[in-house]
Design a protein around this nucleic acid. Sequence first.
DNA 1: AAAAACTATATTGCACACAATTTAATTGCG
DNA 2: CGCAATTAAATTGTGTGCAATATAGTTTTT
Lengths: 151, 151
Amino acid sequence: MNPTPRLDEQLCFALYAASRAMTARYRPLLDALGLTYPQYLAMLVLWERDGLSVGDLGERLQLDSGTLTPLLKRLEAAGLVLRTRRPSDERSVDIRLTAEGQALRTQAAAIPERLLCHTDLIPEELFRLRDELKALTARLTVSIPTQGETP
Amino acid sequence: MNPTPRLDEQLCFALYAASRAMTARYRPLLDALGLTYPQYLAMLVLWERDGLSVGDLGERLQLDSGTLTPLLKRLEAAGLVLRTRRPSDERSVDIRLTAEGQALRTQAAAIPERLLCHTDLIPEELFRLRDELKALTARLTVSIPTQGETP
DNA sequence: AAAAACTATATTGCACACAATTTAATTGCG
DNA sequence: CGCAATTAAATTGTGTGCAATATAGTTTTT
C-alpha cells in the first residue's frame, strides 16, 4: 500500500543530519572553551539563571537525570559549577556557577556570531527556521494518544 | 561586546530539541520492528540499494565506521543483514539484506504515514521545512576555512 | 506517629556519535 | 619487484541520550 520510505524524502533524516552538522560546526569553537555541545547548552541556561535544580535544567533542555547527572558532574570536575543539596529540600540539587563558570560567559558570547560568519546564513532566514522548528517540536511533544484510548 | 546567547534564541538548540523530539516520536513505532532510530535509517538506505559497503552507507548517513560497525553488527545479530568481505577488495565489507531484512520493508512502509497521523502536520509544510534543513546542512557542511587561510 | 505514596536525583545498562589509533589490504612508485 | 603511501574497517575511549530501577527525602493518609 505505502511505498518504501526513501531516506532523502524523510523530514526525520533532514533533522537528524542538520542537527549533527550544526553540532560539528560548534565543536571547534567549544573545544576552545573546554565544553561539549550539551555542556554548552547547560551553561547557556545557567548563565541566564543561576542556581537551578537538576530538574529545572532538565525541563529547560528536555533532558533527564540520566543524562544530566554525569554531564553536571563533569562540569563540576572542570570547576565550572557546584552541585549542592538544597537545604530546604534535600532531594533537590542546586547547580551554581563558580567564578570560573561565570567568567566563561564572556568567551561564549562570541560564539554565535563566529558561527554565522563561517556559514553565510541570513539571520532572518535563521530566525524563521528556528521558529518553525520550535513549532514542530511543540507538535511532536504533545502527549501521545494511547492506542484505542476512549476517555 | 556580544550579549550572552540565550538558549531560546539559538537555532542550534531548536534543531537539537526538534531532532530528539522526532526520534522520540519514532521510538514506539520502531520498537515494534525491533529497530533503533539510526538502525532504521540504515535500513532505509539498504532498502533503496542493497549491497553497499560500510563506507557507502556512511557517506549516505554521514556516519563513520566507529558508529556504523557496531550498529551493523547488531543488525547482523538480529538477522537483518549479512556482513561479508568483498572478494574484489578485501578491505571493503558488503552489507546485504537477509530475507528477513527485506521482509521488514513492508512493515516499515506504514511508519511515515502513522507518524503524520499522530501529529497533525501539513505535508506541504513538512516538505518545505525538510528542504530548508537540507539547504542548511549543505551550508554547514562546506569545508571549514582554516584560521588565517590566504589562498 | 507510622505506613504508604510521592518526588528528586542517582545508578545501571544499552546504543549511539565521534576523535584517534590500529589493522589489514591495495595501489603507486622507483 | 619491493616498499612506502593510501584506503577501508575495526577498535578504543569519552560523552551523551534514554529506559528502567534504586535510593533517599518529603508529603499524605490513616
